[in-house]
Design a protein around this nucleic acid. Structure first.
Ligand SMILES: [Mn+2]
Ligand SMILES: [Mn+2]
Ligand SMILES: [Zn+2]
Ligand SMILES: [Zn+2]
Lengths: 153, 153
DNA sequence: CTCTAAATTTAGAATGATTCTAAACTACTG
DNA sequence: CAGTAGTTTAGAATCATTCTAAATTTAGAG
């Protein structure tokens, strides 16, 4: 992913493209892991030793507030982040911990009870056992970044 | 809600119906607030002064494990609990904090990418501003149990 | 009823993700 | 250079949840 392009996008969304912000957003765009704040921090701190975890949180919330990043509540006690803001769902394998994108066809025609509500966000989550983990007794050795099986889509 | 009926249901699900378990499950059945563990604890500890928060957590996880309760991840940093295990979605008003049930018509025909996965749980969440809070500058004074507007369904 | 073992409950400590705070640093302006 | 706003930092604070070990209750046997 081109760094200049990342910078442009940030500017487009009224975010001053500081070095840290570029690197954090770039990380999200390149790895489609749906990482936690700590996964981002651990990966980037190798190259940016001065990086603070507070900066990661600050930046992620800034990006989310501007609509560049979505916050997933699919895992207990830990936020996950996704630079893909198109409407799509997610599947969490409770065996290996991987999170896959789920695109769907068809739609919910009517949402009973929300007629007079304003909807800002929609989240569709599934949990279960992924294709790789089906039939396994032990989860596969997790990769460096806990990616689990590659997303097929 | 009849206490004997609650007891029966617990037994049906292989849960020994201790006094605390009955009261906690009964709370969930009567109030359809989608409460947090702490809301349950604060409400019940008035009548059961010896009640421990650990018991609330223990019981909720026991009930969830047996399929009598669903755990909602709709609110940041706090689990919410629902004794309604029928498939339905939820709407969180980010203004007043109420959580409403959302029943839907239509369905997702195909879930692309999950062909070889086992799905154990599905969650559909919406966030926005509820009918009562639309147009308000300040959220309504929250009720004792943070119920927000009554669920219309 | 009494005795034991298993199950349940309890208080409080520990955990861990996230948020807060105040200081240090950087980029820009004049 | 000096001043200001914006950014980053380390570490403390917060708070829901989990853990632990002891106390209590329950159920069954004698
Ligand atoms: Mn995604
Ligand atoms: Mn519900
Ligand atoms: Zn898996
Ligand atoms: Zn509301």
């Amino acid at each position: 992913m081109d760094c200049g392009k990342v910078e442009q996008t940030l500017r487009l969304y009224q975010i001053k493209p500081s070095y840290h912000r570029i690197r954090i957003y770039q990380y999200l765009l390149e790895r489609r892991n749906h990482p936690s704040a700590d996964m981002i921090f651990q990966s980037l701190v190798r190259e940016i030793p001065s990086l603070s975890k507070a900066t990661v949180y600050n930046t992620l919330h800034l990006l989310a507030g501007k609509g560049l990043v979505r916050i997933l509540g699919i895992v207990d006690n830990e936020a996950r982040f996704d630079a893909d803001t198109m409407l799509h769902g997610h599947f969490l394998c409770t065996f290996c911990g991987c999170i896959q994108d789920v695109h769907f066809q068809g739609a919910l025609n009517d949402l009973l009870g929300l007629e007079n509500c304003t909807i800002d966000e929609s989240h569709l989550y599934f949990k279960g056992r992924c294709a790789v983990c089906r039939g396994l007794e032990q989860p596969l050795e997790p990769g460096d970044e806990a990616a689990g099986p590659e997303n097929s889509s």
